[in-house]
Nucleic acid binder design. Sequence first.
RNA 1: GCAGGGGUUCCCGAGUGGCCAAAGGGAUCAGACUGUAAAUCUGACGCGCAAGCUUCGGUGGUUCGAAUCCACCCCCCUGCACCA
Length: 436
Amino acid sequence: MTAVDPTLIDDLDARGLIAQMTGEDQLRSWLADGSRTLYCGFDPTADSLHIGSLVPLLTLRRFQQAGHKPLALVGGATGLIGDPSFKAQERKLNTPDIVANWVEKLKQQVSRFIDFGSAENSAEVVNNLDWTEKLNVLDFLRDVGKHFSINNMIQKESVKQRIDREGAGISFTEFTYMILQSYDFAELYKQHNCTLQIGGSDQWGNITGGIDLARRMYGGQVFGLTLPLVTKSDGTKFGKTESGTIWLDPAKTSPYAFYQFWLNTADADAYKFLRYFTFLSVADIDAIEAADNAAEGRPQAQGILAREVTKLIHGEEGLIAAERITAAMFSGELSDLSESDLEQLKLDGLPSSDLDLSTLSDTPLTTLLADCGMAKAGREVKDALGRNAVFINGEAKGASDNMNAAASFSVANALYSRFFLVKLGKKKNHLFEIAG
RNA sequence: GCAGGGGUUCCCGAGUGGCCAAAGGGAUCAGACUGUAAAUCUGACGCGCAAGCUUCGGUGGUUCGAAUCCACCCCCCUGCACCA
């Protein structure tokens, strides 16, 4: 039997990672007394997870490090239905082939965060479609549905607003989601002796549903633990930026952009995020906070956070690439960059595109920079030009340069006759390479 | 099905014949201040370098002129009825 770390719950608690749990004392001793199997579900709602799923994902890993066996459940079945929990509106159903495709991608992604190789508590990925697919309706209704009381289900906070609220409503399909997820827990209890489900705090209703079902169907005593929803001090939504969601897939959010996201964390959130998203000890994080408070000026927390999380998600190479670009864009002199440095930045994931000089004469900068994705619309570029906040190879451009892109992008001005590094505002950079 | 309420620019939400690309707030972008932070202040915020162009559920109409008026249609909500 694998040795377990009995302080796990205390550590999670100290990190602020426990929103709710069932049978606290019982659960503590249950986890302290032996290696247990737990699971967390991830529904395929896109072709990649985003940082919203990071807290549960990393928590699975914390359990594994403490000697427990994690199961990552990918919701091939539940993804076909859609979880109504705290959703304001009914969602559109995705087609089975799309969901199946996403399931495959999530399986691979999830696999990188927990350890499958080694020990007795090696992780597994399971798919609830495997046991739901062959279930027929009548059996489901008789064997599973009988254990659920509609009276209880409509009391759940997670669906209450959909039931009470004007203008929303809930379909039978989504309403049934809770039953499906409950069935997962019961099934995992039977198949894997899985006795704990973790998830975001929005999953509480679904988790307690599963606990009841496992008891009713198999007489099993199982537990639930939920993790807090990540919030930001300024009240805006965590995990989104102007350019959209922060994904875990490096093809969707480059390690550089990922690193920058964490680096830009507000002071008020930085230490909380260190506790949530890194494996640094709580004592170390407290020490960092104390040191930052004592010091003048810029805190070190964001840098540590960005490094730790980027390394966790994108590995050492991803981190190095992100730091290389950051150094070049925010501190380095352009003249310090060698030709191969520039080539490397492009490979590292600095946004870049090819430039055809021959078509430049009638293209305003506003169009050019909006099209390459630096700004959402020409208007933003225009605004920046009006404030001399556009730099091409370090040279400030103003409104009068707008119609004269050809002069700004001339071979003579190019770095190594090939590259243009364009900066819009303080934080947006783009590398152009002369095509051909 | 009947009655009533409603569909406005990313979101919330004003606007009921011209002064409306459409108040206000949020989100977002840029600038100042800083520390690639927060707060604050400034500017931008349908598209377009511009001239100008395209919007207010849809289609048609009235009018010199419509988000605003009329007709029909679609969708949502609330009652009631129908169904059982």
